[in-house]
């Protein structure tokens, strides 16, 4: 009997950000889960290496124990602290410095929010904070609009990754403008990771098919009826979109071309 060894059909390069390599191109948040056990199971099902966390006041009431590190193993996941909820460059820098002091890494997911209703970024504040934090030795991953000029400036400021949105945070509207995301990806050298707006697996797949380097999501998992199953779906969709992008899609044409031979038909 002979054994056939199949070569893997699809092999990807790792995602490299700020000199660090990650296997998974799916990055996930840890917020808004109904309980910590579900959160941990969803993170595992997602296959993510990088998980985001927020910096907040500790509860002085010792009966509450809501620190995420009681549930997450920092040896298993790479903790990416964010500056969510910050509305000025100064606030974002303060949160970033506090996050770094926790002692895990120099990475920061920089958010400077400019509008409460849409949570769209304040790009002037974002650039200011990014420049300062890069000088202070942070590895900055900047959450931004799907705007090419801002993305170019963030890269020039020394950001390790630029993270344009697919649609507003928590909206689940999916990828609203594939064109701008493709344009940003085509012009930047640093990794482009689409952050925010993905609602379901097809959104993740379509986004990855644009050729971006990775995808960051939170609400799509946390607010799914079954977050663990959705995390599994997102993992497959991210991989599928990435593989399809690398495979190179066929040309679009507006006429049909038969897939079966036109010869050999019965007379």
């Amino acid at each position: 009997m002979t054994t056939t060894v199949l070569a893997p059909a699809f092999q990807d390069t790792p995602l490299v950000i700020g000199g660090r390599s990650f296997r998974s191109r799916l990055l996930v948040g840890t917020g808004k889960y109904k309980d910590n056990a579900t959160m941990v199971r969803a993170l595992e099902a997602s296959g993510a290496d990088v998980v985001t966390v927020a910096v907040r006041r500790i509860s002085l009431d010792r009966t509450k124990e809501e620190g995420i590190l009681f549930h997450l193993d920092p040896a298993r996941f790479f903790l990416l602290a964010n500056t969510a909820g910050c509305y000025s460059a100064e606030d974002a820098m303060r949160y970033a410095r506090l996050a770094r002091e926790a002692g895990f890494n120099e990475f920061i997911k920089l958010e400077v929010i400019g509008d409460q209703q849409t949570l769209l970024p304040d790009v002037a504040g974002l650039l200011e904070a990014a420049r300062t934090l890069v000088k202070e030795g942070f590895t900055v991953m900047a959450y931004t609009n799907d705007d090419l000029v801002t993305a170019l400036k963030l890269e020039e400021a020394g950001c390790a990754a630029v993270m344009p949105l697919a649609s507003p945070i928590g909206s689940g509207l999916g990828l609203l403008n594939p064109y701008t995301i493709r344009t940003i990806k085509s012009r930047l050298t640093v990794p482009v990771i689409v952050d925010a707006g993905v609602g379901t697996a097809s959104d993740a797949c379509v986004t990855m098919e644009q050729g971006v380097d990775g995808l960051l999501m939170n609400t799509a998992l946390a607010e799914a009826r079954d977050p663990v199953a959705m995390a599994h779906a997102m993992r497959l969709a991210t991989e599928a979109g990435r593989a399809a992008y690398l495979a190179g899609r066929m040309a679009r044409r507006e006429v049909a071309i038969p897939s079966s031979p036109t010869t050999g038909m019965l007379s």
Binding site: G29, T30, G31, K32, Y33, M39, T52, V53, A54, V55, R56, R57, I58, L60, E66, G67, I68, L69, L79, A81, N82, A84, L98, A99, A102, I169, G170, A196, L216, M217, N218, T219
Partner: peptide
Amino acid sequence: VELVHFVGGG
């Protein structure tokens, strides 16, 4: 004095 730690976030 501010005492902070990591919590769940996106």
